[in-house]
Design a protein around this nucleic acid. Sequence first.
DNA 1: GCTTGACCTTCCAAGCGTTGGAAGGTAAAT
DNA 2: ATTTACCTTCCAACGCTTGGAAGGTCAAGC
Lengths: 129, 129
Amino acid sequence: MNISQAATESLLPAKTIRYYEEIDLVTPARRDNGYREFSSTDIQQLKFIQRSRRLGFSVEECRSLLMLYRDEHRASSDVKAIAREKIIDINERIAELQSLSSRLQSLVEACPGDTSAACPIIDGLAHDA
Amino acid sequence: MNISQAATESLLPAKTIRYYEEIDLVTPARRDNGYREFSSTDIQQLKFIQRSRRLGFSVEECRSLLMLYRDEHRASSDVKAIAREKIIDINERIAELQSLSSRLQSLVEACPGDTSAACPIIDGLAHDA
DNA sequence: GCTTGACCTTCCAAGCGTTGGAAGGTAAAT
DNA sequence: ATTTACCTTCCAACGCTTGGAAGGTCAAGC
């Protein structure tokens, strides 16, 4: 299977697949003409990566997950540990963003939003929020 | 004032200040010896940028805010519009992350987390989450 | 005056994860 | 034989720093 087909099936852009090969996440075979030849195993793994990325894992985390995916003797506790760390990361990020959102919201509510130059948002940014 | 002092006062790393100069966010004067000379206005603007960044605005958004900051004839409605857009961005991002977090949470809860290879997290990533 | 150390300068490169484009080879159909 | 649709590699940009190297400058102590 050529790269464009692999892209279609894995829901990843061809460019991204080439990049994943460059960083040794996947290693499709090559034909005599230099074209990449994707096996069904390659496709499975690309799909695995695509879904992991979509779930918020970094590419390096995907590499770890992929190694566990390939490892028939893995311990599910190892997978669980990675997922739990990621949940913590994500929840921290959510808390940060919620704080930002509410601070901005306060500023916006205080701003007249008219043609005058007086602006609590600018003031808030200028002198210690 | 030299760059390290400016860094201390603005809470920005010197490296970052040099970068902000490179992209024309700030334009400190130069001394005869080539050293940057930061005026109190420069410092004010650096602080402004630092706070805006910390509130989640991109560098380009900071550029817009800075232009409004400098503009005595600004309309507060322009500032408010930028802030409102940013709130929408942030809230969208929060919603995405919350969805990720809860999906991961479900997978983690289903995972035994023991020494066996059977793992619903891996399975979830392998066959359509 | 000379050394030391703390500062300053520029330039180059990495990090993340793509994405774009250019230049060129190959395959399949007309 | 030509078009067209694919494939290849390589180089560079995006946003935002951050690191380091190589080198100039300044102020203090001896």
